[in-house]
Design a protein around this nucleic acid. Structure first.
Lengths: 93, 93
DNA sequence: TTAATAAGGTTTATAATATAAACCAAATTT
DNA sequence: AAATTTGGTTTATATTATAAACCTTATTAA
């Protein structure tokens, strides 16, 4: 049985990556709403994905308010695709 | 985004359930080899699946040696199928 | 014939993870 | 100017996964 990348095998991180696979970029607030996570949890998980090189974080300003935008990297895309392939062997798809 | 049943969203438990979906029954030793897990870890995870009613454990004897055989229950089948459906929404399948 | 090793597990301790609570700074509202 | 909101981060806690240590019976070796 194939290994399931533990960084992706987590509900919240998987949700984030899954969303980012389908959009150019998404900001912190949007991800928080879509995933229904707390800010703290999301912040931690985004950092982990970023440290792994799976996403890139741009921390800037939108007018006078802070704004963090996230986008998936090539490494993230690849990791996700490999994860999906591995999972398929478990799901009988 | 749908919730991913945490009892199934674990590599080893998912592997066990996945195997049991395809066979009538499987014994402890077989599952240990197929999943490449340690006996301790497998024992713990089988208990969790059993406590949840997802699998049934028959602890008997094969000749003079103990033998635990496992099989999936209807509840386990249903939970697995729901888990797969939920996951699909994350995987773009 | 008993000492060591193996088979088939279980129990317990530890390491890793996920999660939320508490916190912070700047902006806005009352 | 005090209170509240926005957009987060840091830290503490609860949960989980995992392996190490252990147990019992059977088998093999000395």
């Amino acid at each position: 049985m194939k290994e399931l990348n533990p960084l992706l095998h987590s509900q919240l991180r998987l949700a984030v990556i899954s969303i980012l696979m389908n959009v150019e970029e998404a900001d912190f607030v949007y991800l928080k709403e879509k995933t229904e996570s707390t800010a703290g949890n999301l912040s931690v998980q985004l950092d982990k994905l970023s440290s792994a090189g799976y996403i890139s974080l741009e921390k800037g300003m939108s007018g006078k308010r802070p704004r963090t935008t996230c986008s998936i990297t090539d490494a993230g895309r690849k990791a996700f695709e490999e994860y999906v392939e591995a999972l398929k062997s478990y799901l009988n798809l």
